[in-house]
Design a protein around this nucleic acid. Structure first.
Lengths: 139, 139
DNA sequence: TATATACCCGACTAAAATAGTCAAGTATTC
DNA sequence: GAATACTTGACTATTTTAGTCGGGTATATA
């Protein structure tokens, strides 16, 4: 059970941005340097964030990215969704007509995994970008 | 964020076993057939479960595996630990003297991931094998 | 208007993890 | 002694992850 770097970096980068005045474009280059994340990788990540209406871009010199909404209104679940990061506890598709192992019924532990999935998603659903405590001690 | 098949199958197999009278050896072959899990794979899984004192083995004809404790006393967290399945939300090692990105401080979102890790582990810690509702409807 | 900055975006790749297979055993019961 | 079933380490194909790269386009500023 592991969180991938893409979502992790996405949250890190957005947290970084949220420390600056809103409407002030923050360049990926700066984020890259401050957070030690590859610039190329950040580009990939921000493409998704943009497509999902979490940030908007400002092109050209002094450009960068800007949070599209107040950090209070950005749920972590949105960020994860943007990066196709799903919490998957079962191999079997929930909405499939067939059961889990090619059998007719649900697998014996199906309900447990569903429960776990809901439990974890709940965490992300209730956490906002603004909830991260960004003290000066942490960069 | 994905659960691997090894832990999932482990819980499935143990749930399967817990439906039978305790002290009645259940063979991997039977579990394999009922739950559609490869016998070879189950062997690998049960090796770990045995090493971690969750099941004990009975060799020979009519042998199999037996739960070493009452399902009420088997926490899911134990099963996961047995299979080296850890909940990992950060790349950086917690106990390392260095910070997360080779920097001196913790990464900006470190506390968040710690919190998530604790949150998820909490789920497994509080869930017992006996908590799985094994109705006849599910196999 | 030239130039540097910074976003845009698809294609590519190395490395690691996962999922599963296999073989050659040993112990036990019937 | 034959069949059943656990024992254990080694091996492998596939998938996923993490990250790189190249060749763009848009815009501000000097």
């Amino acid at each position: 059970m592991k969180l991938n770097t893409k979502s992790r970096y996405a949250v890190m980068a957005l947290a970084d941005m949220s420390k600056f005045p809103i409407n002030n474009p923050v360049s990926l280059r700066d984020i890259s340097l401050r957070q030690s994340i590859s610039l190329f990788y950040l580009e990939q990540i921000f493409l998704k964030l943009k497509q999902n209406d979490i940030v908007k871009s400002v092109r050209g010199t002094n450009g960068g990215y800007v949070l599209k909404r107040d950090p209070k209104n950005i749920k972590l679940s949105e960020i994860f969704q943007a990066l196709d990061q799903k919490v998957k506890t079962v191999g079997c598709k929930k909405d499939s007509k067939k059961g889990c192992n090619g059998k007719s019924a649900k697998c014996i532990t199906h309900e447990l995994w569903d429960e776990l999935e809901i439990y974890i998603n709940n965490f992300f659903e209730n956490k906002k970008l603004s909830d991260l405590s960004l003290t000066r001690g942490n960069n």
